[in-house]
Design a protein around this nucleic acid. Structure first.
Lengths: 256, 256
DNA sequence: TTCCACACAGAACAAATGTTCGCTTCTTAT
DNA sequence: ATAAGAAGCGAACATTTGTTCTGTGTGGAA
């Protein structure tokens, strides 16, 4: 006989048990005991409850801890089976709102983020925005100013940022310009450094540079930060004078 | 002697107990026992743990259930005391994404919303957007089209809506136009009905309308739905031909 | 010095709770 | 009809777990 153990979804009684565990937990804040499950599901024997719970555990619908009281936990598979929205850590992330993008306000570096309990406001987002391993690095800033209005970003909007070391051309980034004492939200672009004032044209016949000057004369990478508002002009600076804090991955706007 | 029972915040040891309960619950999915708390907090006697838990319960930091194992629950007061963001139902709402604003796609009426378990995607928002009693009525729609581009709303954005019977002039609303078979996102404005084709100018001397025609000739309210894109023209219709589904309270945009 | 509330302590006890034992019944395939 | 796995059952037991008892130590006010 083909073993009917091949059944891999809960029976009607097992489903009733799962639902009771869920509802009990929601109502009481802790899980029911074996006897409480039995009473609710009209199972007179604790060993029958235990048998069915072991089946549910084998199938991946619950987790138990050996010989611990009230230690039944429903898995996401169980919540899905019951048709219950899973609003746990795997579904949403709560991104700390840590400041704003404004003149004179530095953007916190990753190691300068405020401690957990100092974060007064969070921006909730669906967790599937980024792979799980990067979620903790997200942070949010409130936009001050209208430099990105043509990119449909308004003063007062909140942008959610992912720290990035090598932003791609065209990405919208938040950056801190320490020498300008300026935080800014702009489109990012790598550019060639501008020619020095005494440079001859590339087509001119010139001597090879002195090898000793090679390091001195290696062109430093530059970046252009491009606003999306014709009232502002792009900013062009050596890359090492621009601290890119992160690239924009989401925007939230409230209408009050 | 003034009773020192007047103390109303947890002692250092009691705070350590609260923190342990929280961390145990987060790690294990169920609460610790009296003995587990004692072991962690270097309390050799279960009666001392019990004594301190009774103090915490009196002060409102925990809830217990008589003679139930692992039934300690931290209150919001405790979470606040520990400096832990309270990510429960009072902090965030999860707004069902129920469709899109596009031609030919009706906007669900409040009594037509899909059942809880049919909702496949939710938009998380901070709960303080609307007073608590209205939160369950929020729903979200994805925008198709660019009619509101000058209001900084792009194709693909998600708007969160609050059902509203009497939208105010100037509010951005989602509306269903059944006779046009059109869902639309526009600024809302009440207007006087346009004059009928045989109407004389208001300055002309005309007889008072026949009282029996009063009801028949009462001007019907009209509305104008104003796009924020010069490529589109406002829509003007009798109010009863426009089903306003809700007014926009928030916008979410993802950058992928 | 005395008094008293608070905090602590070990031990014992009571109750809650999970596990095991030995068995029966049901269901389905052969 | 038979076999075998699944499901069920009451009872007993083991362990976990919360509560109570009786006492001590501490510190500050009277």
């Amino acid at each position: 006989m083909t073993p009917r153990r091949a059944r891999q979804t809960p029976s009607e009684r097992q489903t009733a048990m799962l639902r009771f565990v869920y509802e009990f937990q929601q109502t009481n804040g802790f899980a029911p005991s074996i006897r409480e499950i039995g009473a609710q599901c009209h199972i007179s024997s604790t060993s029958v409850v235990d048998y069915n719970l072991r089946r549910l555990e084998e199938m991946g619908y619950i987790e138990r801890s050996q010989e611990k009281s009230r230690a039944i936990r429903l898995t996401d598979k169980a919540l899905h089976w019951l048709g219950i929205a899973s609003e746990d850590a795997d579904t949403f992330v709560y991104v700390p709102l840590v400041g704003e993008i404004a003149a004179g306000v530095p953007i916190p570096q990753p190691d300068e983020m405020p401690p957990e309990q100092a974060i007064e406001e969070r921006v909730p987002l669906q967790a599937d925005i980024l792979p799980r391993y990067e979620r903790d690095r997200l942070f949010a800033l409130r936009v001050k100013g209208d430099s990105m209005i043509d990119a449909l970003v308004a003063d007062g909007d909140i942008v959610v940022l992912e720290p990035v070391d090598e932003p791609r051309n065209g990405e919208m980034v938040a950056a801190w310009l320490p020498e300008e004492n300026e935080a800014t939200l702009k489109y990012f672009q790598r550019i060639a450094p501008p020619p020095p004032a005494n440079a001859v044209h590339a087509s001119d016949d010139v001597a090879q540079p002195d090898p000793e000057d090679a390091l001195e004369n290696t062109p430093r990478p530059w970046v252009r930060l491009i606003p999306a508002n014709p009232r502002y002009v792009p900013i062009e600076l050596p890359a090492d004078k621009v601290q890119v804090a992160g690239r924009v991955v989401a925007l939230l706007r409230l209408y009050r």
